[in-house]
Design a binder for these strands. Structure first.
Lengths: 213, 213
DNA sequence: CCCGTACACTTGTCAGTGTCAAGATCAGCT
DNA sequence: AGCTGATCTTGACACTGACAAGTGTACGGG
């Protein structure tokens, strides 16, 4: 049971028209993927969960890929919002970077259904305009944060490279997160919770950011 | 006539028995996924490419998931071999780390069909023993490299965290690699080739590794 | 030489899937 | 009231994974 977006959800029970079927379908898709993985996603199962006929989703989104593209777009919007809030919550750019990283991973783990689609080029349409706009929006938030680090800590910092590295590390951390407990167990090492890793990672970053040429 | 050598690479054209169907199926699966993505993978298409009936793959691997697990296992074996070779090619642990990172990304991009499955828990069986062994093997190579860095450069280095960070960054870089050109174009920035990024990343790492408490 | 067994693979079938075409239903406007 | 267009349903087709049962092949012991 997921609440849809902020738009007024006119659920009209007995009505032929659904009210706001597209956003209900997006939410149902994200739930389904979160529960059973992207491979278990199916238009018919989504339609079933939304209580509509099997072909209704295709009417709004054209195809399975179209629906997943919409899910990915919403995911990037969530991410941009989470980064904005993290950056607003403190003035120190170091702390901003740390909170942003934490927010990135938290968002990915909180919306696993969205995140699973966001970087899977075969599942969505990488050229879809709303998707590209949403993705760039999130990236620009990060870029601004790194620019503040450059302005206040190291004018020689290559903003683009640093931003790519920060994003890549967080993205990699999300990819590895399910495996981390297993790996720690197999190698008889202590398992570190993700937030602790992020904190240490940020310290590493800062060391490199401040001294980078 | 029929050479009964234990090596199973005997393609016997007119034969009923295929010779070495399992490895042919693994290769066909990797090719198919590399060409058309994991969602386009199907046992029947793989069987078609291998020239066998639609149910032959299931006989050897049990299910689609079983076949993909074998693909992932082979991918980790490739990765471990690539890391080993990279580490053997130089004595300086800094240079080893750089070459290892380069080898990681190169392997992922060279075997995209394998890599796409290796970290997708819903596509393979995470508890499959050969898979776990292969995955841990690759991780141990990296761990050894970071241990050498600790021994020679910074005895206080937390090996586990550093290794996780290195792996996460490379994994994230692979995830982002298809998007990087788009992002650079959208934001009117210069696109940096991946090897250049890796080089800069390694410099960042070292700064953090050497100074980390 | 021949037979029987174990394995490798095929054939057939089932429910479930995405997509398309055509039909049904409804909201809103003139 | 009637028309129009958007929303959703129904039906069909080729495709999929999994299962059951059958067929072909190799190989070792008589």
């Amino acid at each position: 049971m997921t609440d849809t977006t902020t738009t007024p959800t006119n659920e009209r029970p007995g009505s032929y028209h659904h009210g706001d079927l597209p956003s209900v379908l997006i939410a149902a898709s994200a739930d389904l993927i979160a529960e059973r993985g992207p491979h278990a996603f199916s238009l018919r199962e989504v339609a079933r969960r939304a209580g509509v006929s099997h072909a209704a989703p295709a009417h709004h989104f054209g195809s399975a890929r179209g629906l997943l593209t919409a899910v990915a777009t919403e995911g990037f919007e969530f991410l941009e919002r989470a980064l904005s809030e993290a950056y607003e919550s403190d003035d120190d750019p170091r702390e901003q970077l740390r909170r942003g990283g934490s927010a990135y991973v938290a968002t990915a783990l909180r919306y696993p259904g969205h995140y699973a689609v966001m970087f899977a080029d075969e599942l969505h349409d990488p050229d879809d305009e709303p998707l590209v706009i949403a993705g760039c929006g999130a990236y620009e938030r990060l870029l601004e944060c790194v620019e503040r680090i450059r302005d206040q800590l190291n004018p020689d910092l290559d903003v683009e490279t640093a931003a790519t590295m920060a994003w890549a590390t967080m993205a990699g951390l999300v990819v590895l997160s399910p495996s981390l407990p297993n790996v720690a167990e197999q190698n008889e090492l202590t398992f570190r919770p993700i937030d602790e890793l992020i904190e240490r990672f940020t310290a590493f970053f800062m060391e490199g950011f401040v001294h980078a040429r």
